[in-house]
Design a protein around this nucleic acid. Structure first.
Lengths: 121, 121
DNA sequence: TTCGAATATAGACAGCAATCAAAACAGCGG
DNA sequence: CCGCTGTTTTGATTGCTGTCTATATTCGAA
């Protein structure tokens, strides 16, 4: 049994996630929209994840190797766990190049989150 | 002992919170900034809270009585608990008028959150 | 003052989430 | 093939969070 194939995860992908939800002020949120939005906000509701995300985002080209960003005060497996959550929420994508894994920001998803918070004041 | 005085909670207030944090892409987040931001995102990371917030925000004048928004599928104490969390995060303010309590959105705080997500793409 | 309606608090409990150590996996160089 | 480095997964543990019931508080009206 070859274990070396790439397994495609059944996970939120940007194309699906982006046209997600109306602005939070545009009317009462449906149950479904509320749950979708909550998943994205939850991804950014942890200080470690915020710092990891900002490190990726502020790297040149909006991408960074795990090895460049993993000193955030927790163990390396914990870093990996948080990066996975950010990936599952559609906020980051990842790509392996040789020994290293690079994470990139998914700009459209972050923009969608910002749109949810848009106030028509 | 008179229990009828208003107790001022030692809690995040908009004026303190707003000039909080730089955009998430502007550079590596400090530990403190990350923790402050995480608190706000955490407040919106629950579907019930999102629905409560959107109900307040989409009411005329950006304010609503608890009695108008509390049918979101959980018990009354749970609604009260969630509204408290939103208040503590600085996203809502509340005001008692007679028997009823009205919640208002704190627009500047929500705007600050949106600014954190701003991508200079 | 007494009652009832509207909210809030307290306490208990179940499920989830963050963390770590240990082990597994993947790619590279010898 | 072997060992080394970088990353992910697994399993266990511990603390936090959402939820409920029961109780308390606040205010207006009778």
């Amino acid at each position: 049994m070859s274990k070396s194939e790439v397994v495609e995860l059944p996970v939120l992908d940007p194309a699906t996630v982006v046209p997600c939800c109306p602005p939070i002020t545009a009317g009462e949120l449906s149950q479904d929209d509320a749950e979708r939005m909550a998943l994205m906000f939850k991804a950014l509701s942890d200080p470690i994840r915020l710092r990891l995300f900002s490190r990726v985002a502020s790297h040149p080209g909006g991408e960074a190797c795990v090895c460049d960003i993993q000193d955030v005060g927790v163990s390396q497996p914990t870093v990996s766990h948080h990066l996975k959550k950010l990936r599952e929420a559609g906020l980051l994508t990842s790509e392996r190049r040789g020994t290293w894994v690079y994470y990139q920001v998914a700009p459209s998803v972050v923009a969608a989150m910002a749109a949810m918070l848009d106030l028509r004041s």
